[in-house]
Design a protein around this nucleic acid. Structure first.
Length: 432
RNA sequence: GGAGGGGUGACGGAGCGGUCGAACGUGCCGGUCUUGAAAACCGGAGAUGGGGUAACUCAUCCGCGAGUUCAAAUCUCGCCCCCUCCGCCA
């Protein structure tokens, strides 16, 4: 959400800057409602001031044992008039905030202009792309042959876009989760959090999923709870309605959670395999920063996610998303894309973003600057987050990049301690 | 699910329907005292929105929402959350 005052005074600038991203915003209504809110606010305050003075006068008269009937009669009805104007004002404010909550964040100056993913700019590459004598197999073939991935039974018990992992597959998913968490908590300075997977409406609004993207979420039928689409949601909202002291910043959390997404509108995309599921595992990195350090923090955080891939020896590249490809709440986003041999291309495995004060304003997360000066007014923090990493896609990358001619898959050395001594995944004999 | 208790400022905790934005205590900041510190004493300090170059000023905020009243932290109703006991359950 934008600063209401800034929004009111810079409507045209914001509108122009957003370009295509702001095309479905009702700009004229925003303008009109902003103006109305202002006049109604002034009106209410004047009436209230009048009422207050009148009431004080009544109190004074009665204390002085003087007749107060006239003063009371004069005030009669004022309250009702105030209520009327207030109802108006409330209506205007609700309408305005509903519209304002649907305005995307403005991109940072360093974000390249563009309309879609093809305009994203590659920042760097790491690792060597493996070469294969035979065509590289897709992970679902590898996994099914090894008996560690089962999409047919997943479809039976749940439906399309679900997967069952078993044996060494299940083990490796768990190994990756533990490995990532250990690294982020042990070496990168994050505090581990295990949050609820169901959250309320207020929380979903705080990070920007609501009101605009309700269709992307799974929602419970009988209660107003949503399944989280990412740990970003509960973890960022941890400090909702709080004022943090500056010396606590930056706060860095890492959280493993399953993530649930309806994937509405992505029919036909990545229908096979583990790439796009309704439920997947992710280890998330979340940071709360002072405004002056948030871009520095974005680089750090991205580096922490990259390090996982490096330590697993998986080739990847980092791209800066262009203005047209960025998410709703971000000012700047780096995508980390891992190499998938079967597709002959890099695919997203992490997305690291700075939201500046956009989420903080929605969720009311502030900090009080240190220094003991009298002007220590609370200000909004900057929030950031990134995947570190999407676990299922990491498994995909391992299966595909380290597949062997005999159908087995070599396990990266960093995972050996987490795999109970297994260094290679061999076919499960009876194939069940 | 049943019964009861409670939600007030960073925290603890008061609050006859009318100088209550809110006593008091702790913590915090500044000062006096001290070689320094502690103690003691004095003073300061909330959030949001509007107006003003500024000193400042106006409005709102005592879980949330509605109602009663000239006037609500205080009275009434609904909702949310927390706690205790009982039942159920991993």
């Amino acid at each position: 959400m934008h600063d209401p005052k800034y929004l009111r005074d810079n409507l045209d600038f914001i509108r122009t800057s957003l370009g295509r991203r702001g095309q479905d915003v009702a700009w004229d209504a925003v303008q009109k409602l902003s103006d109305e809110r202002r006049t109604l606010t002034t009106q209410v305050e004047q009436l209230r001031s009048e009422l207050k003075k009148g009431s004080d006068e009544v109190a004074r008269l009665r204390r002085a044992k003087e007749p107060a009937e006239a003063a009371m009669a004069a005030m009669k009805g004022l309250g009702d008039r105030i209520k009327e104007v207030e109802d108006n004002l409330r209506g205007v404010e609700e309408a305005l905030s509903d519209l304002a909550l649907r305005i995307p964040n403005l991109p940072h100056q360093t974000v390249p202009l563009g309309s879609d993913a093809s305009d994203n700019v590659e920042v760097r590459r790491w690792g060597t792309i493996p070469s294969f004598t035979a065509p590289a197999k897709p992970h679902w073939e590898i996994g099914e042959a090894l008996g560690i991935l089962d999409f047919d039974r997943a479809a039976k018990i749940a439906g399309a876009r679900f997967a069952v992992l078993s044996g060494a597959g299940a083990r490796m998913e768990r190994a990756l989760i533990n490995y990532m968490l250990d690294l982020h908590t042990g070496s990168h300075g994050y505090r581990e959090v295990l949050p609820p997977l169901l959250v309320n409406r207020r929380t979903m609004t705080g990070t920007g999923q609501l009101p605009k993207f309700e269709d992307d979420l799974f929602r419970l039928r009988d209660e107003d709870y949503f399944l989280i689409p990412t740990a970003e949601v509960p973890v960022t909202n941890l400090h909702r309605e709080e004022i943090l002291s500056e010396d606590r910043l930056p706060i860095r959390y890492t959280a493993y959670t399953p993530c649930f997404r309806r994937e509405a509108g992505s029919y036909g995309k990545d229908t096979r395999g583990l790439i796009r599921l309704h439920q997947f595992n992710k280890v998330e990195l979340v940071a709360f920063s002072t405004p002056d350090r948030s871009y520095e923090e974005l680089e750090r955080l991205t580096g922490h996610a990259e390090f996982i891939l490096q330590s697993l020896n998986l080739p990847y590249r980092v791209v800066t998303l262009c203005t047209g490809d960025m998410g709703f709440s971000a000012t700047k986003t780096y995508d980390i894309e891992v190499w998938l041999p079967s597709q002959g291309q890099y695919r997203e495995i992490s997305s690291c973003s700075n939201f500046e004060s956009f989420q903080a304003r929605r969720a009311n997360i502030k900090y009080r600057p240190a220094g003991g000066k009298k002007d220590a007014k609370a200000e909004f923090v900057h929030t950031l987050n990134g995947s570190g990493l999407a676990v299922g896609r990491t498994l995909v990358a391992i299966l595909e990049n380290f597949q062997q001619p005999d159908g087995s898959v070599l396990i990266p050395e960093a995972l050996h301690p987490y795999m109970g001594g297994i260094k290679k995944i061999q076919p499960w004999p009876d194939g069940s």
